[in-house]
Amino acid sequence: MAISELPTSVETAAPRRRTAWQQFKRVARRQPLGVAGGAIVILMILMAIFADVIAPYDPTAMNYSAFTAPPGTEFWLGTDQMGRDVFSRIVHGARTAVFVGFVASIVGAGIGLVLGVGSAYFGGKIDLVFQRVMDIFMSFPLIIMALAMVAIFGTGVDKVIVAITIPFIPRCARVVRSTALSVREMPYVDAARSIGYSHTRIILRHMVPNVMAPFLIMITAFVGQAILLEASLSYLGLGVQEPTPAWGLMLQGGAELYAESAPWVAIFPGLAITLAVFGFNLFGDAVRDMLDPKLRSQ
């Protein structure tokens, strides 16, 4: 009989512990837009990972018998002026966008995290100088800063990532620093110092884990911006270069010229950018609301 008693005891405990599905429903009720954004984010990531499987054609293959073919059963979203399948290029473009978006955001926010915490920890003159330098970096619009970086580093996927990462650093550092200032006053930091731990250890092991909330908020906020920046740079011809499929690049290749005769060439890549940025922004907003209710009104 002892065995049959077991399920009942589990059942009585069940209402307190929510299943994953119940938890999801709770979040969905509170953050319907965030869940929608999350769905778009997952869709984009899946598209990026399984691009080779999803795309019906090679994104760089030119079909000489079908220049600017309209959308239909053969080419779902039509072909561009070089006879390349728009749908396949959008799917592969997701790979470029998601890759650039995540790498630039995580690296940029990561460097910003260490710099911001370091600046708050050391304080004094270091902090003051650091703040001024960050102010100067912040006095340029993201795209101007990114363009200046392109002028220095050049074009191509890897360089575009660098160009987008650098302007993110001060933006994250500033937010992280303000949280780290209060963490520095915590007794456990004093304790760590009195034990004689090194600065590096205190910063990395004791302070960094306690500023994770603003750090995660910044990462999620950055991804959408990074995707938009990459698209803008590529559109200007200063980002990702042919033949790598990228959404901004698809709009650059004479999309205006073909706007009337083949509007699908201009419409779908832009739709992809908008959808991706929309999804990442909604998701980011929801993450921010959940992690930091104080920021909600902003």
């Binding site: 938009l228 803008s232 559109y235 709009l251 201009a266 890549p269 832009g270 950018i273 908008t274």
Partner: peptide
């Protein structure tokens, strides 16, 4: 408006 690229 925020999500839509201005060039598009």
């Amino acid at each position: 408006g925020i999500a839509m690229p201005s060039f598009w």
